[in-house]
């Protein structure tokens, strides 16, 4: 093999490796991304059904219901503006899970907008709300103060 041949072989192997790697990465990415939605987006039909997604919001006061015989439980995630999603879960809730505190749930949405959670994440310490959750809640909040957009409160008038 001449030096030239060798270089060509190296380049071809390199290109194949890069190609295979990109294909693998794209595939792995596609099936493992979980978008974060607010409860409002669920009722607006923006959140896809039966796919791994995350929903963030506040846990509604008095909504946590436990089974007497197993770990099955359900609670309601709300944005405090009347948009609510019921979440079902059958594992141990994290230490910081509390009613009226923020939480992010990861799992799948059913046809009737019930959420089957695989994982519940609560905020990390007493004063701290995950920035992305604060963002999502704030973003959903924004139109309300914007007089031009027809939000729920305005429709009432």
């Amino acid at each position: 093999m001449t030096a030239r041949h060798k270089r060509i072989v190296f380049i071809i192997i390199g290109l194949c490796a890069v190609g295979a790697a990109s294909a693998m990465i794209t595939q792995a990415m596609k099936s493992n991304l979980a978008y974060l939605y607010a409860p409002e987006a669920v009722w607006a039909g923006e959140a896809p059904k039966d796919r791994l997604i995350r929903i963030g919001g506040l846990v509604k006061k008095g909504s946590l219901i436990r089974s007497d015989t197993s770990l099955d439980l359900s609670f309601v995630v709300t944005d405090n503006r009347g948009n609510e999603v019921t979440v079902k879960y059958d594992k141990i809730l994290p230490d910081l899970f509390k009613e009226e505190q923020s939480a992010v749930v990861k799992g799948k949405l059913t046809e009737n907008n019930e959420f089957i959670a695989e994982e519940v994440l609560a905020k990390h310490d007493a004063e701290y709300m995950p920035p992305e959750l604060a963002d999502v809640l704030a973003k959903e909040h924004a139109p309300k103060t914007d007089a031009a957009s027809p939000t729920k409160t305005e429709v009432k008038y």
Partner: peptide, 17 residues
């Protein structure tokens, strides 16, 4: 473009081979 999280399976799928 939205808030996403990348799950552990992504890393495992690539790291294994």
């Amino acid at each position: 473009m939205g808030k996403i999280s990348v799950g552990p399976p992504y890393f495992n799928t690539i790291a294994l081979p």
